[in-house]
Computed example of a mutant assay.
Amino acid sequence: MRVSRILLALVAVAPLAACQSRMQTAALDDESAWYTGTMPDKPFDVPLVDTSRLDPKFRRQTVRYTGAEKPGTIVVDIDQRHLQLVEEDGSARQYGIGVGKAGFSWKGEARVGRKGVWPDWSPTTTMVSLNPDLPRTRKGGLDNPLGARALYLYQGNRDILFRIHGTNEPWSIGEQMSSGCVRMLNEDIVDLFERVPVGTQVLIKRSGKARV
């Protein structure tokens, strides 16, 4: 599928973003400039982003990890807009993320209760109360707000309705735009998805001091 066709599909879903967002005017100036091609995947190829358009601190990289969490833990820093996967050697794989608008972000401990490939999307009750015109479901695909993969966060056996997922709004990485979920570039969530099993511990931390 040509990238131009992918972009048309992505534009169509923008107002529906799970963990909803309002698109930034600057991002709309030339959406096609955000994309460089595709990565093979099933049942859809993953649109690849020109990461040179991101602030370097939000590009995927390996960093030193100084926290106390054990290897294999996902650590999300809402204030710094980073997600880190702690490695065995004192390092972490770090990814840039988009986070929730003021008043929507969650913090605490959870685990990956299940994983989804090109998952279906449904709005939460809160999202519907704020926007009754939202569709009640959307099948997985290029026009789906959850993107190519999703990690569903649970506490005990309860789905707490927060997700770590892909996005078709790459310009939202590093921004505070969603309704609470953690969003990543599609190629980054695919990378993380392959590295973490169901049961992975997740720590989401937020002090509020760095929020804008």
Rank of each mutant, 00 (worst) to 15 (best):
Q84G: 14
V49M: 03
G37Q: 09
R81C: 07
P56W: 01
D120S: 12
T62P: 08
E109D: 06
V49Q: 05
T124N: 09
I78K: 03
G103P: 08
V63H: 05
I78G: 00
R53K: 12
W106P: 09
E109K: 11
I78L: 08
V117S: 09
D55L: 02
P47N: 08
G103S: 10
T51L: 05
E109Q: 09
R59S: 10
P71I: 04
D77Q: 09
I78N: 02
R59D: 11
H82K: 14
S52V: 06
A110D: 02
S122W: 10
R111Y: 06
D89E: 09
W34P: 01
G100R: 09
K70S: 11
T51Q: 14
L48S: 08
S105H: 15
L54G: 08
A26G: 12
T124P: 05
F104K: 07
D89A: 06
P40L: 05
K70F: 00
A92T: 05
A68R: 10
Y35K: 03
P119L: 10
A27L: 13
G116V: 00
S91N: 15
P123A: 07
G103N: 08
E31F: 14
G113W: 13
K107T: 04
D30Q: 13
V99W: 12
G113Q: 11
Y95I: 02
W34S: 00
K101C: 02
D29T: 14
R93L: 14
A26N: 13
W106K: 15
R59C: 11
K107M: 04
S91T: 15
D45N: 15
P71A: 06
P40Q: 06
G113H: 13
Q61C: 07
G108P: 07
I97R: 04
K57N: 12
T38A: 13
S52K: 11
P47M: 05
D29P: 08
Q61N: 11
G100I: 13
K70H: 07
D50H: 00
P43I: 03
Q61L: 05
V75Y: 10
T36V: 14
D89I: 01
L48H: 01
G113A: 08
P56F: 00
K42I: 13
G116Y: 00
Q94G: 01
